[in-house]
Amino acid sequence: MTQHTFKSARKRYQRVFWPLMGVYVVAVLGGSYYLSTLEVEPTWLKTVIAIAVTLPIVAALFAMLRYFDETDEYSRLFQLRSFATGAVITISAIFAVGFLQIFEVIGSVDVFWFGPLFFVCYGLAHRLTGGRDC
């Protein structure tokens, strides 16, 4: 197995992550624009675009997993704690919103927003606990 240092792991992660985010933005904007130009939006095309937009996010998540494997032990602990904090808050929100819907307290909520919620919580947990360099 290749021995990675903290710096090489971070470089490898950033070399993959930022281009993927670029692809994501282009896919979201391009896909939305293309659909808006059509008079009739075929379901198959909307499905293809939805999956195409999702793929960079999935790839970025796998890049994060690889970074957790390759970075140094303290940074790994730090990242995993922040990741877990984001997951705990997001899963709690999913259950709370889910039960509020089941008990008919609130109407429908777009499931999509739980994804950004997770990333915001993960990022905030990372920043607030001082993980600037990890």
Binding site: T5, F6, S75
Partner: peptide, 22 residues
């Protein structure tokens, strides 16, 4: 940190006793 191949924050955490290295 460069010599050890870890982050500067790791060195700081070990030095201050916040983290025990493997």
């Amino acid at each position: 940190a460069d010599h050890l191949g870890v982050s500067r924050q790791s060195v700081n955490a070990i030095e201050t006793g916040k983290y025990d290295p493997s």
